[in-house]
Nucleic acid binder design. Sequence first.
RNA 1: GGGCCAUUAGCUCAGUUGGCAGAGCACCUGACUUUUAAUCAGGGUGUCCUAGGUUCGAAUCCUAGAUGGCUCACCA
Length: 493
Amino acid sequence: MEQEQQQLNELLMIRRRKLEELRNRGVEPFGQKFEADYYSADIIGNFDTLESREVTVAGRLISIRSHGKAAFAHLQDYRGQIQIYLRQDQVGEEQYEIFDFVDIGDFIGVVGDVFKTRKGEVTVNVKKYTYLAKALRPLPEKWHGLKDIELRYRQRYVDLIVNEEVKQTFIDRSRIISAMRELLNEWGFLEVETPIMQTIAGGALARPFVTHHNALDIKLFLRIATELHLKRLLVGGLDKVYEIGRIFRNEGISTIHNPEFTSVEIYQNYADYEDMMKITENLVCQIAQKVFGTGKISFQGKEVDLTPPWPRETMIDVVRKYSGVDFSQISDDQSAFEAARKAGLELDKGLPWGEVLYLFFEEFCEEQLLDPIFVTEFPIEVSPLAKKLPSDPRLTLRFEGFIAGWEIANAFTELNDPIDQRERFEQQLGKREAGDDEAHVMDNDFINALEHGMPPAGGLGIGIDRLVMLLTDNISIRDVILFPTLKPRAGGE
RNA sequence: GGGCCAUUAGCUCAGUUGGCAGAGCACCUGACUUUUAAUCAGGGUGUCCUAGGUUCGAAUCCUAGAUGGCUCACCA
């Protein structure tokens, strides 16, 4: 503690001295509950009715301009900023003197009359003010703000104070998720919660995080998807369910990957992937309308029209369009391999037709899909939980929705044949044994559930973080996650 | 994990060929009762990311490391 004191630099020492001085004068710098009757924005917006009326506002001081026996300052609250005006002859000598110990960053509450200055700025002429909290650290500089990206993520609270657009993004994020819930509830879906800690982490191809339960002395995994539990609920007779929740994947970090992220998965009995397409396009467009008032958004300077219906194209067609290679004319693994080599792709010999097709899609197509589109009929090898196409068992009734080159949604007509499902898991186990630690593990209880009968169903997953990025025009996932995963600094923080 | 780049005052950033560590804002002292990037007069507050090395001398050059960014790989 003493050592901590010694390490404080002069700026911090000065603020602590002011804190002591306030206490010496009988003013408690960390105040009590304070009921404001207006937000700053409401006072400014309703000046005509509030002029000369008394208002109570609370907020953080973000600037002070002192003029001897009077002072101007700006108070920032959740909804904006408002100027306050303090005169010695109005607040009294004692209160005015104590104002000398106020710093930028402090929280105060004020009572005063609303007026307009000569320059026309709506201002509160303070009669009384109260200390709510003293800030012992200075805020970043007033017009460059906080730019250091690392500091912005590590001290998001400061980022939120000084960068208005950052606050707005997270308000928008919250409203996007609310709108999603409202729409799904309105459409008759039931929100449920399934385990985050699981003995088997399935439902996606990814490495899980591992933890340990002491009392049971067992290994537990953090979920990598909500899929398999939600489908168990369809078996149980809950016809329409969804879960919005955190998913954890033990993988690399990038501008579009955070180890923990939020997904929504939606399942509907007696439905198929066509229904899921309708849900996807309506959900995304109506969320945009509810939150931003329009189905046409601007992303990185390009207009994106989210209005349904979005075009549907098969993966084979999309691959033909962007790579010129026509997989409808390629029927065996060997010819697929040769086509890939010819197209300049590096790949292992013996890769099956479906995986080669998918490789073409990833390499040549994904990033070109800027306008909303559903790519359908994914190969079976990469879709172990999706139902086969009746006309072509190499493909599945699966689609992904793409916008701005990003995968936004992933959905299929769910595989409900337990025997087929067991075989798919066994294939995945084969991959696993061959060293692919992201392949599926066998989930016997899930098979057991399917053996009790699961109606035909459509299922859909949407990555909420990427959807928020798209709707708020952010290109880094860290700008839509309040506290993104970072390495701790040496020395711990 | 590979490559490239960055790290200097509370914040935003300069720093030449290796020669005493700089600016603006913030902060401190004083003046000022409608200012608003308030103004005026004065004041530099520092582990130059860390540890070694080269050198008479290192923020600057070299080596290793830390953190971050971009990118490739990875990742539906």
